[in-house]
């Protein structure tokens, strides 16, 4: 029992981060994480034995997100007011700050498969191979999703760097 908590809980902060990046609402994100954890606890016997609990948890969470969780929980996009006001850590230069403010809105525009690839690699720092496992696609597919995600995000942020961002400031 304690073993289960010891193996699962260290990953909860990053699961919450990933969920939040997918959903952009605190409550909705934690609902998704809870859903994921419930599955994990119930299916604990089925966990991979190679110590890859982290990947397993990410896989469950992502599948739950896709499996209509979003449709049920999210009637339209719920964005906390805090999202618009939140200022990134000080010390970030102006350009990075603008990007930080809007980057979540930017990835929101990406198809989920690209968004997840980018988040898992860039934020969660999964290896490409591990990302491929979570997304259940070949590594080559991960690489091309990543390339498309980054290209698209670049365009979105460049385009958005005009009036849309000023509104936030």
């Amino acid at each position: 029992m304690d073993e289960m908590a010891a193996l699962i809980e260290p990953h909860i902060p990053s699961l919450r981060r990933y969920a939040y990046a997918l959903l952009r609402g605190d409550e909705a994100a934690d609902d998704l994480v809870q859903d994921c954890l419930e599955r994990a606890v119930r299916g604990w016997r089925l966990r991979p034995r190679d110590g890859q609990v982290r990947l397993w948890l990410f896989t469950i969470l992502r599948n739950r997100y896709i499996d209509g969780f979003r449709a049920r929980r999210m009637r339209g996009l719920q964005v906390d007011a805090a999202v618009l006001e939140q200022v990134p850590a000080s010390g970030v230069d102006g350009e990075a700050r603008l990007a930080a403010l809007d980057v979540l809105a930017g990835i929101e525009q990406l198809p989920e498969e690209q968004r997840s690839a980018l988040l898992l690699v860039a934020v969660e720092e999964l290896s490409y191979a591990d990302t491929a496992r979570v997304l259940d696609v070949p590594v080559g597919t991960v690489m091309s999703r990543l390339a498309r995600a980054r290209e698209r995000l670049k365009q979105l942020l460049e385009r958005g760097a005009g009036p849309a961002l000023r509104r936030v400031k």
Binding site: M4, I12, A100, K154, L157
Partner: peptide, 23 residues
Amino acid sequence: QKEALRTRLAGKAAEPIPARLRV
């Protein structure tokens, strides 16, 4: 982009785990 994403999301991972998410 990567840096912006990480900066933007860092706070979330640093939060204490809500009680309801404890195993």
